[in-house]
């Protein structure tokens, strides 16, 4: 029963994704390519590429793997499998944190953890920058995006569209 397999394996993958979706990409590859043979190796590379060019979380690529394995029903099943349990846990956390927010331990935990969470976002920014900033031109795009986001009310969506267009049109001309 392939739908049940898809659901169970994607649920297991999601439960091991400590720190976020990127933490289980290699596990996702091992299970969907080598163990269950839902997709071929070159399909998996496309799966990750698709995840990057579409909005939303990287694990939405589960829909692609599920589709390759079992059509539309497979796409829906894999998507529910990979998001349902972590989502339930987070809403449960929201509920519990609200109940106990006055407890000194929870207050202390939140105080100490908040700066760490900000620091973690710095890791993401660093990784993105390392990939994107191949030369000075992309550094200018990043700097302009930062200035616009920090000092103006320009919509982030417009900044993203602008960066993509500049990269696509001017990038190849300037950098060969």
């Amino acid at each position: 029963m392939i739908l049940l397999e898809l659901f169970v394996y994607f649920a297991i993958i999601s439960m091991l994704a400590f720190g976020g979706g990127n933490a289980v990409i290699s596990l996702l590859e091992r299970i969907s390519v080598e163990q269950m043979r839902w997709v071929a190796p070159q399909d998996f590379a496309a799966a990750i590429g698709f995840a990057y060019i579409t909005p939303g979380p990287i694990l939405i690529t589960s829909a692609f793997i599920g589709y390759r394995a079992a059509g539309f029903a497979g796409a829906v099943t894999a998507t529910i499998g990979v998001f349902l349990i972590p989502w339930s846990l987070s809403v449960l956390a929201a509920f519990q944190v609200r109940r106990y927010i006055q407890h000194p331990w929870l207050q202390g935990f939140g105080l100490g953890a908040a700066p760490a969470v900000i620091g973690l976002l710095g890791i993401t920014a660093f990784a993105l920058g390392r990939y994107a900033i191949a030369n000075w031109f992309y550094a200018v795009i990043a700097g302009a995006a930062l200035a616009l986001a920090l000092f103006t009310k320009v919509s982030p969506i417009l900044i993203l569209i602008g960066g993509t267009l500049l990269g696509a049109v001017v990038g190849p001309i300037l950098t060969g």
């Binding site: 990057y52 993105l128 795009i141 990043a142 302009a144 995006a145 986001a149 900044i159 190849p172 950098t175």
Partner: peptide
């Protein structure tokens, strides 16, 4: 190149 431009903008916004 398009993906690089997008990612550079994402890094700046972030």
């Amino acid at each position: 190149p398009a993906l690089r431009g997008l990612t550079a903008a994402v890094a700046g916004i972030l």
